[in-house]
């Protein structure tokens, strides 16, 4: 498993989710802290493309051998893409939580919600 890291170019939700903002589309995933707490991910239950996700609410489930966890949406919008590689390689969520382990892409319904997310420094401070 990779060492702890929290990229500076991402926005963070206190429930240990990240968002990479690109115009009105954002990519979601879970942070290093979240995947470490969960252990080896063996199953990612993705939402359907076209469904809507709501900020602060669960949009998917991620399961390790020992537990299941809800994945919380950091922002609201419509799912435009689901990472197809996670069906066969859910372990990417552990091994590459910010790159290969991304979960979904969402067209944001209210891009101003981004302002409420934490920056890297604030998120890292919240982990102590």
């Amino acid at each position: 498993m990779a060492d702890a890291s929290y990229p500076e170019d991402l926005k963070y939700h206190p429930e240990h989710d990240w968002a990479r903002i690109d115009g009105d589309v954002a990519t979601f995933g879970i942070t290093w802290f979240a995947q470490d707490a969960l252990g080896e991910v063996v199953f990612f239950d993705a939402p359907d493309v076209g469904s809507t996700v709501t900020k602060d609410e669960s949009y998917a489930e991620v399961e390790s051998v020992k537990a299941v966890s809800d994945v919380i949406a950091p922002l609201s919008g419509e799912v435009v893409e689901v990472n197809p590689a996670l069906e066969d390689s859910p372990e990417s969520i552990n091994e590459s939580s910010y790159e290969d382990g991304w979960m979904i892409k969402v067209r944001l319904s209210d891009p101003s919600q981004v302002d409420a997310l934490l920056d890297q420094a604030a998120y890292v401070a919240s982990l102590d």
Partner: peptide, 11 residues
């Protein structure tokens, strides 16, 4: 101890 290296690997 619930796990060391990881449940799957230990299993």
């Amino acid at each position: 101890p619930v796990q060391y290296a990881g449940v799957k690997e230990e299993h």
